[in-house]
Every structure is written in structure tokens, then in C-alpha cells.
Design a protein around this nucleic acid. Structure first.
Lengths: 229, 229
DNA sequence: TCTGATAATTAGCTTACACTAATTGTCGAT
DNA sequence: ATCGACAATTAGTGTAAGCTAATTATCAGA
């Protein structure tokens, strides 16, 4: 980054910030984000996405290969990670400091992330002791734009007999999250994978002394890490 | 308010919220808000205001008398007070809970007020013990939309010899606010008006055992209440 | 009563960002 | 090698909200 990089380009609009976040999530496993994936994630029509892709690639935030999809540039990735940092710090703040349920923080953070200043986020992070994970276990990018990448396995794929640590819940549906919390299935919980029914059937796990049966749909949202027994 | 009032009208846009707030402030002493006053308060061109006035009066948020000005309807006033409530609670929250300087809260609150939910504001208000005044001494409307109206006098108009309580600072300029705080001129401060120089000259006041000279420009921003000696 | 200054409004554009309908590109299956 | 399905794009519209330039009201002072 030399002095030749012109800074003070116009601030990103709300829409642009949302597009960048979506593209980040869709490409986090590598590859391209397609027009229709972005459209359905943002709940808008595909032609709207095509139009925006044109603008974003002109601004240098994404690389667009027509009829293939898009990827973030360095600049775009950085902007996306800033938004994700804001979002996740807000989520932690709302749960820890304002008594929000972990199922209710997503929507609130989704609106606030576009309005908070960098200063406010830093102050919230400080007040929280610079947390590294959000309430759902997702890693929080640093102010510099670095994010932890963990190799996790969903409970639906975990090895039978393994002892696993539930690290992250990949969902934001309030009702499902509430149910999971009731079942004791929150990040940090240690469990043993007892058995799995065939044909995408439920997984039986032991949590402490109790036994629970977790359906496929939910099991796919529970990201785990195998640990020593 | 009967059942015939159709609720769930589309949520107000950011712009509309800003217009309503401006009109509220411009008409708080009664009378009409003129197109050019609104324009200069929002830093936009007068024709933009004319256009918006048309829309807002069609929506029933304001009463527009062409070439005269506008006033808020009940509905508009209620919406404006909600925004002011949000703004002021945010200001208190930022200073009390996140260590903001009273000069820096305005801009942050200005952006956040459009993004926070009613729930969040209520939780913040609870966490703060339902404060009645913001950091500048301005009254905070209740959730129901009631606001305290006080009869205050600026320090520039205060009676010579009077003991006054500094209630409210009508400014949002960070540098000026910082200066005022250094001078000990914050809401709640008690002072005695010693003398005033002619031709809009400075006012001399005693704060505790110290004496300060306050220029006309600042004196006009300091709203006071005469109290028993 | 008239008139000029000023304020307000109308007319006509622009940009951002959505939409639907029509068109074009890609790719797998025959 | 071609075709059809589906994805992507282009074309054309609409709405919110800003702008400048041109026009019209209002009102105070001569």
C-alpha cells in the first residue's frame, strides 16, 4: 500500500456491503459465487445481481467472469471481513451486555453493522475483552482483516465413537437456535457420537450423562472438532 | 386511535426520519418550519425539500401550507419524538457505557438512530435506569412520545445577579463541547450571573469560587433556570 | 399601487438499486 | 453435432431522493 493508492474513495453503500458479505460467504470454501446463489442469498432477482456485479467489478471490489461467477479482490475481501467483524462483535455485545438471546442477535446486528463506526466497534470489542468468537462460535476477524480458518466437520459426518467438541452452529434461525440451546447444544459443549441411523437418519450423542437424538437437518448445522477422549 | 387507522404502513426511510426530526426542532417553539430552514438544517437544496414536503403531506406526516411552511401532524410528531428518543438514549448509552466524550456522541447517534430496533432502545434505557436527560441536558421523550417542556433562558438573557442552574447545552460541535467541559460548563452546574458587557458582550459568571467570562456566542447555547440563592 | 428582492415551487436530470420480460450463453444428454 | 434446459445477461421501467435552472408567489418599501 503506497501513497499512490488513492484512498478516500466513496464509502460503500448498504447494498454493496451486503453483496460483499454474501460473496464472501459463498466463496469461503474457494471457487466462484454464482449470480443465482447471490440472488437467493440476498433475496433479490438475478438481473439485479448481474447489474451490481458490473458496478462492483468496475470499482475493483470483485473479479467477474461472465457466465461463471465472481470472486472478491483483495480490496473486496477486506471490506467483507470488516463487515463480518462488525456483525460478530455486535452479536457478542448484544448477548453479553444487553441480555439478548443468541437467536435474536442476528437481525439486529444485520442492521447495525451498516451504521456503526470503526471506533464504536473497537470500543465494544474492548469492553468485551476482544472476543475471538461470536455467540454461534464463528470466528471474529481482527481489525486488520485476519480470520481464523478451522477445519470442522458437521455432526452429520462425525466419526462414530468419536469424542467431539461442538465449536460452531451454522444457523441464524431464532426458533432453531432456541431449541438447540434447550438441548444443551451450544458451542463449547463436549459430546460423544454414539451412533447414526442409515439413510440420512438422526445421530445419537451423549452429552455428559444424557443421551440426545439429533436429526439430520440439525446435525448438518453443528460443526465439530474431534478431540481426545 | 380506533381500529380503522390502518397500521403497518411502510416503515419510514432514513431521509424521511431526518426531515421529521428537523421539522420537529424547527417548530418546537410553535409556528411553521419554512422550506429554506429545513433545507439549511439538512444541508440540501430547497427544491429537494419542496419535493419531500409534497410526499410527506400526502402520507399524512405533515401539514403543508404552500409558500408558508409545514407543521407536523400528530402522526409526524409521534414519529419525530421516537427518533429523538432513540437519539438521546443512544447518546447517554455511548457516554455512560462505552466511554464516549459528550462531544463525540452526536454523529454516532445520528447514524445509529436509523438502525436500532425499539427493543434495543428499551434495553439500553433499562441498562441506564431510564434516564430522563441526554448528556447535553436535553429531555428524553418517553416510549409513549411525551417530552418534558421546560422554560429555560439562555445565559445571554439571564438576569444579572441571579443564581442559575445550567440545564442544557444547545450545541453539538465537538470542539465547543470539549471547551465547555473544560470550563466546567456542563448541565447541572450552578452559577451566579455577575455582569454582562454591553453590545452583546461577554457574561461574567461565578462557578463555585471561580469566575469565568463567557462570550455571547457560547452564552446563547447555555440554557439555564433561575434558582433560589 | 406597484415593484423588486427573496422564498418557494415546478420542470427536467441524475444516480442507486430494485423489478419484469426478452434474449443469449453454457453444458449435459442424446 | 445438436438441442433443450437452465443460468446469466441485456433491455427497459419504477421509485426514492438528490441536483440545477427556470418560474411563480409573497411581501416590504417606495
Amino acid at each position: 500500500m503506497h501513497a499512490t493508492v488513492r484512498d478516500s474513495q466513496p464509502p460503500l453503500t448498504r447494498s454493496v456491503e451486503d453483496y460483499l458479505k454474501s460473496i464472501y460467504h459463498l466463496t469461503s470454501q474457494g471457487g466462484f459465487a454464482t449470480t443465482s446463489d447471490i440472488a437467493s442469498m440476498l433475496e433479490i432477482a438475478p438481473p439485479s445481481v448481474s447489474g451490481m456485479m458490473k458496478r462492483l467489478s468496475e470499482t475493483g471490489l470483485i473479479e467477474h467472469v461472465p457466465y461463471r461467477g465472481v470472486q472478491l479482490t483483495h480490496q473486496g475481501r477486506h471490506a467483507a471481513l470488516q463487515m463480518i467483524r462488525r456483525h460478530r462483535i455486535l452479536e457478542v455485545y448484544l448477548t453479553q451486555q444487553l441480555g439478548y438471546d443468541w437467536g435474536d442477535v442476528h437481525d439486529e446486528a444485520e442492521r447495525l453493522e451498516h451504521a456503526v463506526s470503526e471506533t464504536l466497534i473497537d470500543r465494544m470489542a474492548d469492553a468485551l475483552g476482544n472476543p475471538r468468537y461470536d455467540p454461534h462460535g464463528a470466528p471474529i476477524p481482527t481489525a486488520a482483516g485476519e480470520i481464523e480458518e478451522a477445519e470442522l466437520v458437521t455432526l452429520a459426518d462425525a466419526r462414530i465413537g468419536a469424542d467431539v467438541l461442538l465449536r460452531q452452529v451454522g444457523d441464524e434461525n431464532p426458533a432453531r437456535l432456541r431449541y438447540l440451546a434447550e438441548q444443551g447444544l451450544t458451542p463449547g459443549t463436549r459430546l460423544t457420537v454414539l451412533e447414526r441411523q442409515p439413510f440420512n437418519g438422526p445421530v445419537t450423542v451423549r452429552i455428559g450423562t444424557e443421551t440426545r437424538v439429533v436429526g439430520q437437518e440439525l446435525a448438518l448445522l453443528l460443526f465439530c472438532d474431534e478431540v481426545a477422549p
